[in-house]
Amino acid sequence: MHFTTTVRIAKSVLMAAMAFFFALVVFNNITDFQSNYQFVHHVLDMDTTFPGNKGMWRALHPAWTHLVFYLGIITYEALNMMLCWWAAAAMFRARNATPQVFTQTKVVGVVALTAGILLWLVAFLEVGAEWFLMWQSKIWNGQEAAFRMVTIEGILLIILLLPEDR
């Protein structure tokens, strides 16, 4: 097998692995709705942050806002999953194509990985951790997991952007 084809297959498989990750996340969020809903509820309610902190005015207490946030996250993850599967399939189909054609198929992957990074960075590390002070909670703190996903998707994005032709 030619080196270029091997690298293209590797990129396709890595994109499929990210799609599979998002498929599992969506599956878990739907089949165990209440567990992950509780996470969103407690972060937005800010009920496990430091007692007496001056940011409590930011808390969202109405349950319907928690549901809207959670359904929005699940929908975003599902759309991101579809983009990742689409990119993986397109890249795999184009594994023997010209460099220009293969590069075009990577566009959807770049969009998918960027969208994934934005999910973890904006929704979890910025809005959750900083605005709703999730970092103060010892129980409902998703910063570590979010950082892990920003890192993984960032590395995959760099790999995807590397030229595979010598």
Rank of each mutant, 00 (worst) to 15 (best):
T5F: 12
F102K: 11
V127H: 13
V13I: 11
F92M: 06
A129N: 14
P51G: 13
L118S: 11
N29M: 05
S137I: 12
Q143G: 10
N80F: 04
F22T: 07
I139L: 07
F147V: 12
A16H: 04
Q100R: 03
L113N: 15
Q104N: 08
G55D: 15
G109Q: 06
N28Y: 08
P99I: 09
K11T: 07
G116C: 05
S12P: 04
C84D: 00
L113P: 11
V122W: 06
D165M: 09
L121D: 09
L162T: 01
N96G: 12
F39R: 07
R93D: 12
L133F: 07
I117Y: 14
V150M: 13
I73E: 05
L160I: 08
L113V: 14
F21P: 06
G52F: 03
W135D: 15
A94V: 05
E77S: 01
E164L: 02
R93F: 10
A112R: 04
W120D: 12
F147D: 15
G109S: 06
L161M: 07
V150H: 05
V150E: 07
A23W: 02
L118C: 12
F27L: 00
F50A: 14
N28E: 08
E164P: 03
G128W: 05
L113D: 14
V13Q: 03
W135S: 11
A19R: 10
Y37L: 11
L60K: 10
H66S: 01
L14S: 13
R95F: 15
T98D: 01
G109K: 07
A23S: 00
A115Y: 11
F132K: 00
T98Y: 03
L162H: 01
I74H: 03
M46A: 01
I152A: 04
A19D: 09
E77A: 03
E153Q: 04
L83G: 02
T75P: 09
T31I: 11
G154C: 15
A145F: 06
Q136C: 08
A89P: 00
W57C: 09
N53D: 05
A59W: 15
W57I: 13
A123G: 03
A94E: 09
W140K: 05
L156F: 07
C84L: 02
A10I: 14
C84I: 01
L44F: 12
M134C: 07
L125Y: 00
F132E: 04
W140G: 07
F33K: 05
A78C: 00
V127P: 06
A59H: 11
V68Q: 11
L133T: 11
H42I: 13
Q34H: 00
V43S: 01
Q100C: 00
G154I: 15
S137M: 08
V25C: 05
V101W: 10
L133P: 05
E130L: 13
L71G: 12
T49C: 07
R8C: 14
V43H: 03
L14D: 13
E130H: 10
L118P: 06
I159L: 11
